[in-house]
């Protein structure tokens, strides 16, 4: 049970001692082997060995708060690109989908417009597709655009208003709606 640095292919123990956890696998000979560079972590209670990878994951994981841009709006699904995650790096854009569930007896919340920036939580991942949700508190639209003219919507008295078209939209917004500095600092982004 040495805590030496592990490399891909390095034997950690045998299957009789520990079961493979994250970043570990069983080789043909019944040995538990590391699949990444990192330090092995032995859980003596659960009898599981995992490897703490030296590289943080570039992909979002379940539970991450992410910033995404709406790409396509359909009846039940809003497709978006995940562009940043809170407290971490998302180097590449990933596909996400916000599934809008129809609420019985209530008028469903207005959906999104293409280009809207939304703060959501990763609910699940299935084969590289992320299911996102904005149902929890503190989640929602951070920057929205007018359906008609494409201008930024201004938050006024509980709704979003377009200054040019004089049309009000209802969206679930976050407390720092429209505050660019807050958005950028929360997700570690920089204006390019």
């Amino acid at each position: 049970m040495k805590r030496d640095l592990a490399f891909p292919g390095k034997r950690l123990c045998v299957i009789e001692e520990f079961l493979p956890g994250r970043y570990a696998f069983i080789s043909q000979g019944g040995e538990v082997v590391s699949s990444v560079i990192g330090y092995p972590v032995y859980d003596t209670k659960q009898h599981v060995v995992s490897v703490s990878s030296m590289r943080p994951s570039l992909k979002p994981v379940v539970g991450d708060v992410v910033l995404c841009e709406v790409r396509e709006v359909q009846d039940r699904v809003v497709l978006c690109d995940i562009i940043a995650k809170e407290g971490g790096e998302v180097k590449y854009r990933w596909n996400g989908a916000i599934v809008t569930t129809p609420r019985s007896g209530k008028a469903s919340l207005p959906a999104f417009t293409i280009g809207d920036l939304v703060v959501a939580v990763v609910k699940s991942e299935s084969f590289g597709m992320y299911e996102l949700t904005i149902d929890e508190k503190g989640l929602g639209v951070v920057l929205a655009f007018c359906d008609y003219c494409g201008r930024n919507l201004i938050y006024r008295r509980g709704s979003l208003v377009c200054n040019k078209c004089r049309v009000a939209f209802r969206r679930k917004t976050v407390s720092y709606y429209g505050n660019r500095e807050a958005i950028l600092s929360r997700f570690g982004l920089q204006l390019s």
């Binding site: 292919g9 699949s35 990444v36 560079i37 590289r55």
Partner: peptide, 11 residues
């Protein structure tokens, strides 16, 4: 590949 943190069965 190992440096990028890609999971591999060996070098």
């Amino acid at each position: 590949l190992a440096d990028a943190g890609i999971q591999m069965n060996d070098l």
